[in-house]
Design a protein around this nucleic acid. Structure first.
Length: 742
RNA sequence: GGGGACGUAGUUCAGUUGGUUAGAACGCUGCCCUGUCACGGCAGAGGCCGCGGGUUCGAGUCCCGUCGUCCCCGCCA
């Protein structure tokens, strides 16, 4: 392999195969850097030694695939290249074969400046040749293998679960797979194998794991792809601590495989504590926690600052930011997104001028050092009105050590600001820079005792915060019982029910989430009742599962971790795309294979599917595939696309600037779908029933593959179809059918 | 669904208050070069300034729309 040769190999014969990474042509002496997965070796071709090979080498271009046989030679001391592992040797070519040529790639794997994502994704096979990508994918393999090996050694079975499964209304949107055999019905791709793994526990496979693809049809982020990989595991009879031990074990193995020695056990923190100290349920422990500095102010100070004295005053300390200019201070304000009456005091100097004693106390309490930035977040006095009204909640919650919604608003606002500030001044405080000490670089944390229920302000009800199979705390069972009576009361005892749920967090990223599950039918019923679900509704949605629970279900629990995120952090990457070989864009498009695409009518018909609304995707995919040189032409009272002009489209009319495009008619049709861009730039698409088509084109006989184009014209509030000189008003008709505005 | 950034040569980018023929670097092509490894030297090719409208005597530059990529909010049990 190209990265393998060492001085000890000197004198040996070797054959290397790989890509031409670089050719340095010095005339009758040519150097070729030959690259494969393992590295780069320099090949020397000397015209004096072999004119034929030299001639062949002159034809080589970047990314040609070649095979070279030659003798490994130690380099002279003066020509050693310390930058590469094979730098002390080179291969003197005695035979050279061009295995394949290459077109000039849009970018080279050896380029130092990164090409834009669009090009990288389109030519992913070239992008993946880059050493960083090779490293990341190899790292991913090593991590996955380490986890498999560890869990297997611990007695876990890797068991596969179906990809084509049942849609559940809970949680994220499902990706659906239509059934041909039973038209009108759909499988769903799993958001996670949650129910199957619990069924496996019921089935007696007491330790299960799987490195498995999951699918969620939600909007993407840098750390969210529509398909992603989970390390999913479940075991019987565990305390949460037992699950944590297993996770700590395989993470240690995974990080070791990546060359990092991490410490276990990870620290643990209650959800409430995480909110109080960090304003978020996935704290980044590398940064300083909040300090509550309400006590540092005198009551009059708070009044003067219009701060609500019954809510916390949070100090955010960002280290080593240094003196900020007026403009820089102003830049902080837009970074703050106030929730529920939270307000910001970004100018600590001014606080110091006005209230020197308070400022001194704050500086002391926060451990402020020279150059540290202090920003305060507090509840505004205006928020006091509704605060007073629910002061009862405040006291009640205080006894439960529970964070109230009002406090949460302050903490959460401060929490996002804390991260934004840390991000903005990352260069200055340097906390995010790797030190090389894994214990400092990777700050793990277990966040535990999540609330069982979340208040939905819109629906005025309590929802399951995790999933409805999460077991509540044994001690909170009584609250659960009484809380059921107050399902639509935001102050319900349900607010204080804790779940046996836990998250594993690394450097502010949620790596995984798990829980001890409910294994008893009676508890499960109570939870469903608490969620306002009747027995019948519950049966309807989770029938098979509830039935399974009744056949001797052992206590069980587990967790699922995002493999992509783990590898991303290990690789030091900013985006999941860097650790997924074939990722999708923010619009869930695969730019290499160009998916998704519209499918033929025949395919849809087989599935019993009728697509009513063709959206942007349809329009784009269909239009883009038309030759650019088409223009509309009218003949024999019909409109055709002809090869004349530059773009597809109709000449702009006075009334409306309309584009139009073809619709491929099926053998049989009940309606046409037309899409039209109105003068306001809005895309209208609507269904045109068959009898209207007949009115417009009386002589028209639908034929397979026949294409028709028409234009929708708008005149004020009236809409017309145009066919030749005829105009057919469809305004009224549109009112009766569904006109869908895109 | 909402907000923001970006789109100029194959690639990364520059392009002034709108004003001659749109530049640089790398890459590419040809020639020269025996110790390079970011090789060097000489010569050269390469542009619907994303697309469509508009304003203007004049648009890469201003306005509107649209397409695409990225980031964020909502969403993601």
């Amino acid at each position: 392999m190209c990265g393998a040769l060492r001085p000890s190999d000197a004198g040996k014969k070797a054959t290397l195969m790989g890509w031409v990474n670089k050719r340095r042509d010095l005339g009758s002496l040519i150097f070729v850097d030959l690259r494969d997965r393992t590295g780069i070796t320099q090949v020397v071709i000397n015209a004096e030694r072999d004119a034929a090979i030299h001639e062949k080498t002159e034809a080589l271009r970047n990314e040609y695939v070649i095979a070279v046989t030659g003798t490994v030679k130690l380099r002279d001391a003066s020509t050693v290249n310390k930058n590469i592992a094979t730098g002390e040797v080179e291969l003197v070519a005695e035979e050279l074969r061009i295995l394949n040529e290459s077109k000039l790639p849009p970018f080279l794997p050896s380029d130092t400046a990164l090409t834009n994502e669009e090009t990288r994704l389109k030519y992913r096979y070239i992008d993946l040749r880059r050493d960083v990508m090779q490293f990341n994918i190899e790292l991913r393999h090593k991590v996955a293998k380490a986890i498999r090996d560890y869990l297997s050694a611990q007695g876990f079975f890797e068991i596969e679960t179906p990809f084509m499964t049942r849609s559940t209304p809970e949680g994220a949107r499902d990706y659906l797979v239509p059934s041909r055999v039973q038209p009108g019905t759909f499988y769903a791709l799993p958001q996670s194998p949650q129910m199957f793994k619990q069924i496996l526990m019921i089935s007696g496979f007491d330790k299960y794991f799987q490195i498995v693809r999951c699918f969620r049809d939600e909007d993407l982020r840098a750390d969210r792809q529509p398909e992603f990989t989970q390390i999913d595991l479940e075991m019987t009879y565990p305390q949460p601590e037992r699950v944590w031990e297993v996770v700590e074990g395989f993470l240690t193995a995974a990080f070791a495989a990546a060359g990092f020695a991490i410490n276990t056990p990870f620290p643990r923190m209650d959800y409430d504590e995480a909110i109080r100290l960090y304003g978020i349920d996935k704290p980044d422990l590398r940064l300083p926690a909040f300090t509550d500095v309400r006590e540092c102010f005198a009551a009059e100070n708070l009044q003067e600052l219009a701060i609500n004295a019954s809510l916390p005053v949070v100090a955010i300390r960002t280290p080593k930011v240094g003196e900020l200019s007026r403009k820089e201070r102003d830049d902080i304000k837009p970074m703050f997104h106030a929730k529920g009456g939270a307000k910001i005091f970004e100018d600590f100097k001014r606080i110091g001028n006005k209230f020197p004693e308070a400022a001194a106390a704050i500086a002391k309490k926060t451990g402020m050092e020279d150059g540290d930035l202090i920003v305060l977040v507090a509840g505004s006095a205006q928020a006091g009105a509704w605060q007073a009204a629910s002061s009862q909640a405040h006291t009640a919650a205080a006894t439960n050590k529970k964070v109230t919604p009002q406090e949460l608003a302050i903490y959460a606002s401060a929490g996002t600001l804390r991260l934004a500030l840390a991000q903005k001044y990352a260069e200055r405080h340097g906390i995010f820079k790797k030190t090389g000490d894994a214990a400092k670089d990777f700050r793990f944390l277990w966040v535990t005792n999540f609330p069982m229920f979340e208040w939905d302000e819109g629906e005025k009800t309590w929802n399951a915060a995790h999933h409805p199979f999460t077991s509540p705390h044994e001690e909170d069972m009584a609250k659960l019982e009484s809380g059921v009576e107050a399902l639509h009361d935001p102050l319900s005892p349900l607010s204080a029910v804790r779940a046996l749920a836990y998250d594993v967090v690394l450097n502010g990223t949620e790596l995984g989430s798990g829980s001890i599950r409910i294994h008893r039918q009676d508890v499960q019923s109570r939870i469903f009742r608490a969620l306002g679900m009747t027995e019948e509704e519950a049966r309807e949605r989770f029938g098979f599962f509830l039935e399974a629970l009744e056949y001797g279900t052992p206590p069980h629990g587990g967790i699922a971790l995002g493999l992509d995120r783990i590898v991303m952090i290990l690789a030091g990457a900013e985006s999941l795309r860097e650790v997924i070989p074939f990722p999708k864009t923010a619009r869930a498009v695969d730019l290499m294979v160009d998916a998704p695409t519209p499918v033929s009518y025949k395919q849809l018909r087989d599935l019993g599917i009728d697509v009513l609304k063709f959206g942007e995707t349809f329009r784009r995919n269909w239009l883009e595939k038309l030759p650019k040189s088409l223009e509309l032409k009218r003949e024999h009272g019909r409109t055709y696309l002809n090869k004349v002009g530059r773009r597809v489209g109709l000449p702009a009319s006075r009334e409306v600037k309309a584009n139009s495009w073809k619709v491929e008619l099926p053998e049989r049709f009940d309606h046409l779908v037309l899409l039209c861009q109105s003068d306001a730039g809005k895309v209208l698409d609507f269904v045109l029933p068959g009898d209207l088509v007949a009115q417009l084109w009386p002589a028209y006989q639908p034929r397979p593959g026949h294409r028709i184009t028409t234009v929708v014209v708008r005149d004020g509030e009236r809409y017309f179809l145009r066919a030749g000189k005829r105009r057919l008003e469809i305004t009224e008709y549109l009112g009766k059918t569904d006109i869908l505005r895109g």
